[in-house]
């Protein structure tokens, strides 16, 4: 007899680590692809998604059963991705070069490579580029809603922002994306 997700979480909370495998197997793909969309690198996405599972397990006793595990886990993963991107941005500014006029130029970023896409149609390449140019908050909300297909309520639980803010942030993100994708509209 297969267990429900709540029962599995409850067993993990009692220290039965072997049940955690079921949760990891259920969400590993969506976690990896979401992280890949956020950070644009295969190695970083794998590392961040696994780190999120480890952190979730370490604090699973604090998980409240009235929430969905997926939403709680994605909150951890999102925070890790944002923190990773901030650190990376700081490092890129520190490890910078200077142009002929002595202005500081950050090193070019090899992430968000179009080779990561399954289909490299021009519209997909442009969308991938446009997403990489969005701010972190706008990229995360587009990925959660349109890539992961989550509802506003789920996004509210993950990002801990009111549904009204979900809607306004989506509006800002889609408006910017629409401008960047104007040639394909």
């Amino acid at each position: 007899m297969s267990l429900t997700e709540k029962e599995i979480v409850s067993k993990c909370q009692r220290g039965e680590t072997e049940y955690y495998e079921q949760l990891v197997n259920k969400y590993k793909r969506s976690a990896y692809f979401y992280a890949l969309g956020m950070v644009g690198s295969v190695e970083d996405a794998l590392d961040l998604s696994q780190e999120a599972f480890i952190r979730a397990y370490r604090s699973i006793k604090r998980f409240k059963p009235q929430y969905q595990f997926k939403n709680w886990f994605f909150r951890i993963l999102t925070n890790l991705c944002i923190s990773h991107l901030r650190k990376k941005r700081r490092r890129r500014v520190e490890v910078s070069t200077e142009d002929k006029e002595g202005r500081t130029m950050p090193l070019p970023d090899d992430h968000f490579n179009p080779h990561l896409l399954l289909e490299r149609k021009e519209i997909m390449r442009q969308l991938w580029k446009a997403l990489s140019e969005l701010g972190n908050k706008h990229r995360e909300i587009i990925l959660l809603r349109d890539f992961q297909g989550l509802s506003y309520k789920q996004i509210y639980e993950i990002l801990e922002i009111p549904v009204g803010t979900v809607m306004s942030r989506l509006h800002q993100a889609r408006s910017r994306l629409r401008v960047k994708m104007a040639d394909f509209m």
Binding site: Y20, E21, V24, N25, K28, R29, Y32, F33, L36, G37, V42, L46, Q50, F53, I54, Y57, H115, L116, L117, L118, E119, I123, M124, L127, W128, I142, D146, F147, G149, R174, L177, R178, M181, F184, M185
Partner: peptide, 25 residues
């Protein structure tokens, strides 16, 4: 925009990555 984003697919990593995923965690 929604349709194109939903259609966007990334390359799947090699199967060994998924097979050893839980072990590494």
């Amino acid at each position: 925009l929604k349709e194109v984003t939903a259609e966007m697919k990334f390359k799947n990593p090699p199967q060994e990555i998924w097979d050893s995923y839980w072990q590494r965690v």
